[in-house]
Structure formats: C-alpha cells, structure tokens
Design a protein around this nucleic acid. Structure first.
Length: 511
RNA sequence: GCCCCCGUCGUCUAACGGUUAGGACACCAGACUUUCAAUCUGACAGCGAGAGUUCGACUCUCUCCGGGGGUACCA
C-alpha cells in the first residue's frame, strides 16, 4: 500500500485493475430515476478517472416489464447529463449487440455448456411444490428452493417430461462459504448453505438476469462491477456462476465488485420509482441543470475533500475513487440539491444561462423562438439586460420565467398577484401619483437606473416622507405585478418610459 | 426463521489512535438592501449503547440495540 500514489489508503480494499472496464446496465422499466443516475455517474467517473472503458448495455430480458419508451428515455437521460460511453448501444463496440434482447443465441449456447458440464441442472419443481415440501419438512415457507431436482436420474427426468413438464435450469451452488472483497464495504462473507440453487433459464427457454448479467460481463471483459446495494445479496450466486464460466473458458477473471449505498427517500424507505423526487425528468422540468444535479448526486456517498461540496465534473473525475465511497445509505435532500444547483447556475456564463433558460421561457409561452438567434431584437435586448439581474436570483431555471415575464410582456397593465396586492397599503395611490409626476418629464435619454433611483428617492422618500418600503412597493407591483421582482430601477430602465408610466397609471386606476 | 449490509448534528459529509469532533444544506437571529435572492456575522445541533484493546478511542475488537435489504421461473 505504501507505494500507492493515491492520497488515501484504502485499507483492505483491492487495487483497481490496470485496464479498467466498467459498465452501466439498466433495465428499461419506467422513467429514469436518480438512483439509477447516481449508479451511472459513479461508473462513468471511475472510468474517466482511471482512463478506462465505460460500457453501456441494456438488460431487457423481461419482455413483460421492459419498454422501448423507457429505453429511449434512458438514452436521453445520459445524453442530457453528458455521461458519455465508449462501447454500447448506439455507439457499438467489439462485443455487441448491447441489448440483451438481441443476444438470445449467446445465452442459449452458454446455458447449454453449463448444463453439459453439470454446473447447471434441470429442475422440474414448481413454486407450489417447493413451498409444500418446505412446510412439510418443518421449514419456513420462505426457505427457498430445497435442491430437490439436483440429482434426478434420467428416468425421473423422463417421467416429468412425460407429464408434459418443461425444466427450468438451476445453478448448482457449492456447499462452502463464499467471500469477496467489496470495493466499498471491504470483506464480505456469505455462509455456506445460505444461497439456494437458483434459476438461470425459465422452462420456456427465456434466460434470466441471473445468467445474462454475468455472461455479458464476462464476454465484455468487465473487470469492475459497480452497482446498487440491492444486488449485494445476489453476489455469491454471481461469483459461483463466474467460476463456472471461467472453467468453461468463457470468463477470464473474476471481476471486482463495489456495491453503492441506497438513495433513500422520505423516512427510512428506499427512494421508490413512484416518488416524484426520484424522477430525473421532473427535476429537469423544474430547472435543474446537469452540473447541479450531478454534483448533488455525487455527494450522496462521496466527498471530494474536506469542507468542500461544489465542484465540476472535471474535478470529480480528477479525484474520484470508488473506494472512497461510503457504505451507508443517503437521503435525497431536495433542498440541498436545489442549493447546489443554484451555485452552478450562478457560475454559468450569462449567454449560456440565457440559452439554457430559453426552453423554459418557451414552455411558459414568454417567447416563441427555439433558438436565441431567432428571438426578436427586442427580446434579445431585454433578456441580455435582465440576465445579470436574474441569474443570481434563481435556483432553478424554471424560476426564470417568473422573473422576466413582466419585462418581456408588452401589456400596459399587469394584474397584481394576490400576495402582491396584499402588500399595497392605503398610501399606494398617492405614492403612484407622486412617482408618475416625478418621472413624467424624464427624457428617454435620461431614463437610466441611477437617475430613476435618484428621482424616485427624492420625490417619494425625501419629499414625500414615505419609508422606502412604502415608497417603492407600489412601483414594483405596478411594473411587475409581483411582490418579488428583479431589482426595481434596473427593471424600469429595461421596461422604458412609456410602459413604466402606463403600468403605474393603470395600477392607480385599479387600486 | 435464515443470510447480508448499515449506524458522526434534522439531512449530506470530514476525521483514517491524540482536534474545543470541521464544513455544507435546512432552521433561527442580526447586518446590508427598494422586494426577493445573493453576500457577510452569529446561534442551534452529532459520534446508537455497553464492554474490551491502548498512555489515549468517532477511529481497532466483541456484544447488544436500532434501521435496511435479500430469501423469485424481477432486476
């Protein structure tokens, strides 16, 4: 360990392989969720940090649950987030195809070899029969498969077939402890006999995840498996199958495993797919940017260093090591996620900020163009002027519309929102009269932030005797219709003289 | 039942045998300010419990307690 150049020492955790190959292999069921993204992110970050290979494979062996729509969404998610892959669906590679639904022949062939070698065997027991046997033997119903078909004779198998039964294929588990060194958790040991023989091929010939996942990892020469904690207890099965695959010459070496902690939702429950906070695209709709969301997700189990939590993906790649990831589950805290996102929004170049805000402005029907260059001159002018005022004030891009709507609007009257109207005191009418009088003969050339500030302060505060709060509140409501707006005098300048005066006059009318 | 994982402020984390246990988010108070936000100050708040090892344990060991997952012809 002493010669390692890493800044941390990693206790008993294994060293990472030289030519690291990791993979991300979701099943396309449902809309992408943040736990899945976190798994993709850590795989990607380790691959990039180690200058290894990131393989993207789709595990769509369950026709009942998988959907093409979900597949497309996962693709879109990775692209949006900027998590690029070196081999896999769409980009291809030496070990394709990369959708398991297109690899049936491979699995059939391997299953055949496993069966011929005696590593797998035919099992004719139904779930009901297994349960009945367990109960009859005084074992709990949840005991699992009892090994009944392990050593069936040819005659017995024939008898089952004569009944019209078709066998599932089960892997023969050895009667010994199975241990491995997890990259995140260290040494883990499963007691002998705690894992029953398990099914790898259904009676109808469909291969299951238990077969396809290790087989593809072997064929694609994956040497580091980083996946969710939910797969931890299936690792011994996987290790045993891998041993068999190595004996058959299908796998070269046992991969290293690292099991990422759960991402938890409210309470002590794993973040479920039904939980809106788990929905990646919902976060995007609200206005998370990839930098912000990824940064937050990275914090769930990993830290770039002491006293630091805002960083770029480049920085993450530079420092990431899976062995530094904590093993305990982390709660998804939307408040902190939003705060981190706000930091990243502030770091955007102003024009970048505007370009990224455009889809949201368009969604909210404030503009109609899809691209910046297709905006009108007026729209470009207003948005460019507003950007520095708005950018530090929003935490999500979805909030931009509310901030610039009144500036973009050509309306001469904006009906105050309820909370804004509530702010208007009895003095509002007089205040607006004074304000209109003070600004009425300002020339267009002099219609500038500082000058407007001076004039209104003088007329309303110094001479009118109103407290700033009472003085500027009605002006704000008149021009924005809202209680919260970008800075007032800057807004007046952007709005221009005629719109400003008309809005003030019209609010005066509608008090 | 059996197997496995996890346990530092409310939340995410730092600490890798020696610190007044640090930071961030949230919350509270104050400053600044035309509102909100940002920014700045400050406050609140934690090692699940008990043994053991040690001169010295958040850190190593064990037990207990608590939480979670698995025990599928899902992944």
């Amino acid at each position: 360990m002493g010669v390692m150049t890493d800044e941390h020492d990693h206790d008993a955790k294994p060293d990472l392989p030289k030519d690291l190959r990791v993979r991300f292999c979701p099943s396309p069921t449902g809309t992408p969720h943040v736990g899945m993204v976190r798994t993709a992110l850590f795989n990607w970050a380790q691959a990039r940090h180690s200058h290894g290979t990131f393989v993207f494979r789709i595990e769509d062996t369950d026709a009942q649950r998988d959907s093409e729509e979900s597949y497309q969404q996962i693709l879109e998610a990775l692209k949006w987030l900027g998590l690029d892959w070196d081999e896999g669906v769409e980009v291809g590679g030496p070990d394709g195809p990369y959708r398991q639904s297109e690899r049936g022949d491979i699995y059939r062939d391997v299953a055949r070899q496993l069966l011929d070698a005696g590593y797998a065997y035919e099992s004719y027991s139904t779930a009901e029969e297994i349960k009945e046997r367990n109960l009859a033997a005084g074992r709990p119903a949840a005991f699992g498969y009892d090994g009944y078909d392990r050593d069936l004779s040819n005659e017995q198998r024939q008898a089952f077939r004569d009944q019209g039964r078709r066998p599932a294929l089960r892997i023969r588990m050895p009667d010994e402890d199975i241990a491995f060194d997890d990259l995140i958790r260290g040494h883990i040991e499963f007691k002998a006999g705690s894992v029953p023989d398990y099914v790898i091929v259904r009676p109808n010939g469909d291969p299951l995840y238990t077969l396809t996942n290790p087989v593809d990892d072997a064929l694609m020469r994956i040497n580091v498996v980083l996946r969710g904690e939910d797969l931890l207890s299936s690792t011994p099965r996987q290790i045993v199958l891998y041993r068999y695959l190595m004996k058959l010459g299908i796998a070269r070496a046992m991969p290293l495993f690292g099991h990422l902690p759960y991402v938890m939702g409210q309470g002590k429950k794993k973040l479920s797919k039904r939980d809106p906070e788990s929905n990646l695209f919902l976060h995007r709709e609200h206005g998370f940017i990839p930098e912000g969301l990824l940064n937050y997700l990275a914090l769930l189990g990993w830290s770039i260093g002491p006293d630091r939590d805002v960083f770029s993906m480049d920085e993450m790649v530079e420092h990431f090591d899976i062995r530094d990831v904590k093993a305990n589950p982390a709660h998804f805290d939307i408040d902190k996620a939003v705060a981190i996102n706000a930091e990243h929004i502030r770091m955007l170049e102003p024009q970048d900020f505007l370009n990224r805000s455009l889809p949201y402005l368009r969604r909210d029907r404030l503009v109609s163009a899809e691209r910046w260059q297709d905006l009108s001159d007026r729209e470009q002018r207003i948005l460019t002027a507003a950007a520095p005022l708005v950018q530090p004030r929003v935490r999500l891009l979805g909030e931009v519309s509310g901030m610039v709507g009144s500036l973009l609007s050509k309306e001469d009257y904006l009906e105050p929102q309820p909370d804004a109207r509530k702010q208007l005191k009895d003095s509002a009418g007089q205040v607006l009269d004074l304000a209109i009088a003070a600004l009425d003969d300002v020339s267009d050339q002099d219609w500038k932030t500082d000058h407007l500030h001076d004039l209104l302060t003088q007329a309303l505060v110094d001479e009118g005797g109103y407290k700033p709060r009472l003085a500027f509140g009605p002006v704000r409501v008149a021009v924005s219709g809202r209680r919260v707006s970008p800075p007032l005098f800057e807004s007046l300048e952007i709005l221009g003289k005629s719109t400003t005066l008309r809005r003030m006059a019209n609010l005066r009318q509608n008090l």
